[in-house]
Every structure is written in C-alpha cells, then in structure tokens.
C-alpha cells in the first residue's frame, strides 16, 4: 500500500508538485497520467526517496520514506525514466550487483534466472548492456525493479522505446504483477494507461486534476453516446420531453447561454440515433433548437479538457 499525503516539492519559487494526496491499495494498478513536465517523475522520485519533499509524507506499507528509509526503500522496486544501467556490465552481472545492493534474501542464482525468464532477457544475459538495443535496456531496467519481489512497484514510463509487440507483453506483465503488488506507473500516452490501469490520476502543472476509476473516466466510449444541445424555451418542459425519448439515459443541463436558451447534454445508448426524435419533440413543444452537436467525448478528449482547463485557470489566476 502506498499512501501519499499533501506532497509538495518546491524548486525555488516554482512548485513542481503541489499538495498531492492519494492512496493506492495492494493489488491496485494506478496510472499516472499527465503531459510532459507535469510533475509525474518528480512525484515518483519523492515516493521512492530519491529526492525529498518540501512538505508532505509518503508512506510505504506503514514505513515513512524519510523517517524509515531503509525499510521503506526495500519494499519498492523502481524503474526510473532513464533505466539506471551500468553500461559496462553484462546483464547477469548487473542483476547480481543490484541483487546484492538491495540485499535480497532469496536464492541468488535461481531468483535472477527466474526474473530474466519472466522479462524474456535470458538470451542476452551474457551480453554487455552497452551493446543492447533500447528495448532490451528498458527490459533490463524492468528486471532490476522486480528483483526481490518488492510489494510496491513504481514504473516511470516503462514502455518507452519498446516496439508494439513488446509493449503488449509488458502491459500483460504489469497486469499480472498488479494482482499481488501495488503498482504505480506513469505515462503520457492515454491508451497505454487505460489498457492497463484500474484507476487513473491525471496530473497537470503539479496538481491532481482528476482521480477516477478507468471505467468512469471512459464511460463515454464504453457504450454511451452524447449529444450537446442548445435549446430555447422553458427548462422543465425541455428536460421532461428529452427524458421521454426512448434510448435516453441521462439529461443534464450545463449552463444558460442567454436569458431564454440553455445548453444541455443528453447521454443515450449507442445503437440509437435520437437526433430526429429530439428535433420532433422540441418542435412539438415549440422550443427551437439553436445548436445540435455530437458531443461524444473520448478519453483522450476528456483528458485534454482536464489539462487545458487547469491551464486556463492558472492563466486567469495569474492575471488577477
């Protein structure tokens, strides 16, 4: 279990990470999503104790990372953005070194062979890391994080530089690891995270802008369609008549656009096309439709919206 409370990191006057709090339970895979420079790596570096926080606490399975670093660190397997590889060593020698460094108390030879088999690097075990391709280097870094079967895995962009086949392999691996471990993994690629994680935290400019189950965030692509409408007329009539159309699941009033008209979002089932019925129903009630738009939102769009909203707020805040 990882518990992060009010974590803040300040570099001079800039807050790279600003008051972040979240908890990841055992067996949960948390996706850390955000554009480049949002503070993902900084947060992960603080969780793993590489850098310290300006304020706030990180608790790994009951051990505070600053108060009890030795124990907390031994519970974490960390794959940083750039895998920490000694280029002049062979894969096996490197893993043996990391094994000793982490003071793992498992049988050394068997454990390393097992991990190499799992990550599929057994065939390059005697090659010098310098000569490996990027994909293999990434996997050696991954193997290093898994040494000693730590209960918490922190993976910073683990699939960067891999080919599509390897990406799928790593994803399946992360999923299978997620059953027993606590996994936090970051990416700026959405499809990546939505395919693997149970829960997504979207981070932008050092603050959490969304924290939701993957299924909730992507409800729009899982079978519901949306229609954005701007209609003139009495709100109760419009809401009632919209709700009566077959296939409609939810109707939400968004905001007033003028004294008479308002914006609505209608969610409806995928195989229905309700546009004609909406038109007929509104004309029957004498409520003219000013604007009708397919308002379907993909995960990608909602992510972009979340991030840009946050930026807008920041700009506004700056002006005031």
């Amino acid at each position: 279990m990882v518990e992060v409370k009010n974590l803040t990191k300040r570099y001079g006057g800039i807050k790279a990470v600003n008051d972040i709090s979240f908890t990841v339970e055992t067996g949960e895979i948390l996706g850390f999503l955000g554009p480049n420079g949002a503070g993902k790596s900084t947060t992960m570096n603080m969780i793993t104790g590489y850098i310290s926080s300006t304020s706030g606490t990180v608790n790994i399975d009951g051990c505070d990372i600053l108060e009890n670093p030795k124990e907390a660190k031994s519970k974490i397997g960390y794959l940083p953005e750039i895998p920490p590889l000694y280029l002049d060593m062979t894969v096996r020698k490197y893993l043996e070194f990391m094994f000793d460094l982490k003071r793992v108390s498992l049988p050394k030879r068997e454990h390393i062979s097992e991990i190499m088999k799992l990550i599929k690097i057994t065939d390059v075990q005697d090659r010098i890391i310098k000569n490996l391709s990027k994909g293999y280097k990434q996997r050696v870094g991954f193997a290093q994080a898994l040494l000693g079967n730590p209960p918490v895995l922190i993976l910073d962009e683990p699939t960067v530089g891999l080919d599509p086949k390897q990406i799928i392999e790593i994803r399946t691996l992360i999923k299978s690891l997620g059953k027993k471990h606590t996994v936090i993994f970051s990416s700026h690629v959405l499809s990546e995270i939505s395919a693997t994680c149970d829960r997504i935290i979207v981070i932008s400019n050092g603050v959490i802008v969304a924290d939701a189950k993957t299924s909730e965030l992507s409800s729009s692509i899982s079978g519901e369609q949306k229609l954005a409408l701007e209609i003139e007329g009495s709100q109760s009539t419009i809401l009632n008549s919209l709700k009566n159309i077959s296939g409609v699941i939810r109707v939400k009033k968004m905001r007033d656009t003028s004294e008479l008209s308002s914006k609505y979002v209608v969610e409806y089932q995928k195989n229905y096309d309700i546009r004609r019925e909406v038109f007929n129903a509104m004309s029957r009630n004498n409520c003219p439709i000013l604007n009708m738009q397919n308002g379907n939102e993909t995960l990608e769009e909602s992510f972009l919206k979340l991030v840009s909203q946050d930026q807008n707020q920041k700009e506004k805040g700056g002006k005031i």
Partner: peptide
C-alpha cells in the same frame, strides 16, 4: 548515466 538513482533508492545508506 543516472545510475545514482539506483544507488540512492536502494536500501543502502
């Protein structure tokens, strides 16, 4: 080479 990250996040003091 950023390998200091491996050293500093290991249980070694």
């Amino acid at each position: 080479q950023k390998t200091d990250q491996a050293l500093l996040t290991s249980p070694a003091s």
